[in-house]
Simulated scan of single mutants.
Amino acid sequence: MTGIPKTYQRIVLAARPRGPVAPENFRLETLDVPELADGEVLIRNHYLSLDPYMRGRMSSAKSYASSQPLDQTMIGGTAGQVVASRNDYYRVGEFVGGMLGWADMGVSDGVLLRKLDTTRIPLSTYLGVVGMPGMAAWYGFNQILEAGAGDTVVVSAAAGAVGSVVGQLARLRGCRVVGIAGGPEKCEYVVKQLGFHACVDYKAGNLEADLAAATPDGVDAIFENVGGACLDASLARTNAFARVALCGLIAGFNGQEMPIKNSRLLLLNRVTLRGFIITEHMEFWQQGLQELAVLVANHQIKYRETVAEGLAAAPQAFMGLLQGHNFGKQLVKLI
């Protein structure tokens, strides 16, 4: 292990948030780099993924996954390089993706790692458009919305890591794609760079009227990342037999209530609403990731990244993500 640092840094969950996430919920620690046992791999993380689901894990409330333990490395996807190996499958120098969390380095038994090919697409994309967010978009669109040419699809958080991919997949399928995003800059990006047909700025204060104007033929499919007022406005525009893929509820991450005022339309329009957790559908990952990688390599899907520098910047970047400050995928660059 010559040339490998003797210590590394990590960020742990120091206290559970009461309301909005705050800096004091985290703690930066320095630890010794452990010796490897047979079958283990030491990885130097290059990028750390920050994602909205982490907010739910920080709570002790019952959810679809176990809570993030206190005083342990914060959960998170990583992309990095093998720097030492006692595992025959992984060689020093290879790039790998895993769930090593908010840390400069990590040890893995190799079971949950996957090798990453950086010859056609950048390493960072494996945490975004060709990673978990991209798969959430791919699965929700293809397996739940099943939208085709001529259908109108509404995507909330349209400038985010998931929503931006959903909209482009829908456009490639021949759909009319309408985004919902916060602020004129994001809406301009969604339309001019990503190719959405329209984008509604929910911060402008006219969400329902603006969405109605952007969906003159109603809405056939909704990809929901936000909930609350966004979902209500979209439900108001649904056509008969509309489908809703419920991927996220960012509007309620700090414990806010999210009543659905237009729930009667679920019945009147015979709407199918299905929530999903992408890690429960691993059987689709190989197909989905292969398709996404080809689309990215061929420049058929565009992406944008917001990058914070250094591990210590992760908490502030995460708080910004929850407030919608990011464009596209939020990453932390560690090296």
Rank of each mutant, 00 (worst) to 15 (best):
T2Q: 14
G3C: 10
I4L: 06
K6Q: 15
Q9T: 13
I11D: 03
A15I: 02
R16C: 06
N25K: 09
N25I: 09
R27Y: 08
L28C: 13
D32C: 09
V33F: 10
D38S: 13
D38T: 05
D38I: 02
E40I: 05
V41H: 02
V41Q: 03
L42F: 04
I43S: 01
R44G: 06
H46D: 14
Y47A: 03
L48H: 05
S49M: 05
L50E: 03
Y53Q: 02
R55C: 13
S59Q: 14
A65R: 13
Q68R: 13
G77K: 05
A79I: 12
R86I: 01
R86Q: 15
Y90H: 10
R91M: 12
V92N: 09
F95L: 12
F95A: 11
V96P: 09
A103R: 14
D104Y: 09
G106H: 04
D109K: 12
D109R: 11
D109P: 11
V111P: 00
R114Y: 15
R114I: 02
T125G: 00
Y126C: 00
G128H: 01
V130Q: 00
V130L: 01
G131L: 00
G134D: 01
A136F: 02
W138K: 03
W138Y: 15
Y139H: 12
F141L: 07
Q143S: 10
L145Q: 04
L145F: 06
E146H: 13
G150L: 13
D151E: 12
T152K: 10
V153Y: 11
V155M: 06
A157N: 06
G160L: 02
A161P: 00
A161F: 02
S164K: 03
S164P: 01
R173M: 03
R173L: 00
R176E: 06
V177S: 04
A181Q: 08
G183Q: 03
C187F: 03
Y189F: 15
V191M: 12
V191Q: 13
Q193C: 11
L194P: 08
L194K: 06
F196C: 10
H197N: 15
D201L: 08
Y202P: 03
A209D: 14
A213C: 03
P216I: 07
G218W: 04
D220Q: 11
I222T: 06
I222G: 04
E224P: 10
G228D: 14
L231I: 08
D232R: 05
A236R: 14
A236H: 07
N239M: 08
C247M: 04
F253P: 00
N254K: 05
Q256I: 01
R264Q: 13
L266Q: 07
L267F: 14
R274T: 13
F276Q: 08
E280D: 15
E280P: 00
M282T: 15
M282H: 12
W285G: 04
G288Q: 11
L289F: 12
E291C: 11
N298F: 02
H299L: 02
H299I: 00
A308P: 10
P315N: 08
G320F: 09
F327A: 01
G328R: 08
G328W: 09
K333A: 15
L334Y: 06
